[in-house]
Amino acid sequence: MISRTKKVVRSVAVAFAAAAAFTMTVPTGSAFAIDHVPCRGGENFLKIWSHNGGQQSVDCYANRGRISFGGWWVDKISTGNNDLIYYDANGDSVKIERWHEISFPNRPPRVNAIEIL
């Protein structure tokens, strides 16, 4: 009986040590990464209308994360089901909550990065 108890205790100890080693070696952090996705009607992606140097663009993003926006001027933002922070060229960060649509007809911000929360 003592032999069986020792085996069980040893097995539990080995399992615990393996779990602890795995926990310490696997990086922690978010498993999410922001993705540039095709804009499709009916989807609730973050959607940004922008322009820069005579070019215009409409871009959609999904999933949590932060990505460079390249200093483009933003004309309109539709957050869909995403909370957003954009980081402008003046060093400001602006949070916009989900389900909002904002237009910047007169003074569009120049955005260096966007982050979906």
Rank of each mutant, 00 (worst) to 15 (best):
K76Y: 02
K6T: 06
S3N: 05
S11W: 14
I85W: 09
V26Q: 03
G53D: 13
A31C: 06
G53L: 01
G80M: 08
R66S: 10
I96Q: 01
I2C: 07
V94P: 00
V74E: 03
N106Q: 14
W99C: 09
A19T: 03
Q56M: 12
A15F: 10
V8D: 08
S57A: 08
A89N: 03
S93A: 14
G53S: 14
T25S: 10
P38Q: 12
A15L: 13
G41E: 11
C39M: 04
S68H: 09
H36W: 11
N82S: 13
R4L: 15
N44A: 15
P108Q: 04
R110D: 07
I34E: 11
N112A: 09
G54H: 06
A62T: 08
A17L: 14
I48E: 00
H36Q: 08
W73A: 08
S103K: 09
L84Y: 00
G42I: 12
S30T: 09
G42N: 06
Q55V: 06
M24V: 04
E97R: 03
C39T: 10
C60N: 06
P109I: 05
N63V: 10
H36S: 13
A113G: 07
F69H: 02
P109V: 04
W72S: 10
S103P: 02
F104K: 03
I114L: 04
A21K: 04
S103F: 03
G80F: 05
A31E: 13
P27Q: 04
P108M: 02
Y86L: 02
A113P: 01
V8H: 08
A20L: 15
A13V: 12
G65A: 04
G54R: 04
N52R: 10
S93L: 03
A17D: 11
R98K: 12
N112E: 14
P27R: 05
E101F: 03
D83V: 06
I48W: 01
P105M: 15
E97P: 01
W72R: 14
R110H: 05
P27E: 01
A20M: 11
S11I: 13
K47R: 10
